[in-house]
Design a protein around this nucleic acid. Sequence first.
DNA 1: CTCACTGCAAACTATTTGCAAAGGA
DNA 2: TCCTTTGCAAATAGTTTGCAGTGAG
Lengths: 158, 158
Amino acid sequence: MKSPCPQHPHPLRLIQQPLSDLTEKLRRGELKITAPRQAILEVLRRHASPLTIKEIHGALGKSDCDVATIYRNMHTLEGLGLVRRHDFGDGAARFELSSDGDGDHHHHHLVCNQCSRVVELDDCILGDFEQLLAKRHGFSSISHRMEFFGICPGCRPG
Amino acid sequence: MKSPCPQHPHPLRLIQQPLSDLTEKLRRGELKITAPRQAILEVLRRHASPLTIKEIHGALGKSDCDVATIYRNMHTLEGLGLVRRHDFGDGAARFELSSDGDGDHHHHHLVCNQCSRVVELDDCILGDFEQLLAKRHGFSSISHRMEFFGICPGCRPG
DNA sequence: CTCACTGCAAACTATTTGCAAAGGA
DNA sequence: TCCTTTGCAAATAGTTTGCAGTGAG
């Protein structure tokens, strides 16, 4: 329903692709180090939890860069594996720097429904379960999307 | 970021509430059985996997009911626990009839990235993990959102 | 000098909402 | 009759895109 753009396919699809296009471009030096790009990465580097486009834009000098540029760069950076996209279900995508160039060391979050505080959860326990699903249903290249929600200690009534 | 409407709060919040308002209204007979409402439920009853608003609207007589009405009813029905909302990450919410009035017997999906075929997964294995999170991070009322993606046997190359 | 990148504005999509009319109970 | 619900149209919000100008390599 989103992203009919051939250069920026649906996020779910992106994960599947071997990133061939973009990493190759990066290698060939066809990707440029621009001011907005550096600024965006700097903002992400300064924050522990995922940020929305709006938050990133706010954290920049407001004049430093247009939102459209941020959107385009998030697609690019996500494709390069430098950034991960998360969905907290409130309609705004959130982005976070990948810990490393580590290909598969993703993690999930525990979000407070009241104050939106975010706890970064270390590792993911779903690897084995994905294997099981693959075997049981004949699917390959299985990935998942998962986040947790609740009321944090600070917001708990009583 | 969404739903500032007091009567139709953010989906994530809805899950938390004891549904007090709506179930009470239902009990008091303050909710009415209307044609659009019945038609929508009938459509959902006929389908095994979650449908988008657009799909529901298409499955109706197109003239049977306005999209706005479907949106409003999905909020209401979700609040009543008759319908569950799912998010496949493509920007369109999907809705499915709850198996029963069973309060907590939710389930997840395995979606083909190619053909969008959906496999309904039986049960959820995250109960214990939520307990662990609650204990470890002091959160209460923990819930989660989770879906799986991959390439189904029919779409696998080779 | 070239081609990737950006800003700006317009377009799109999903979703929400105000209001007056319609219809269950 | 009364109050919920609906249709319609307009408003939001997040995101995408076309195009002409800018800038990195």
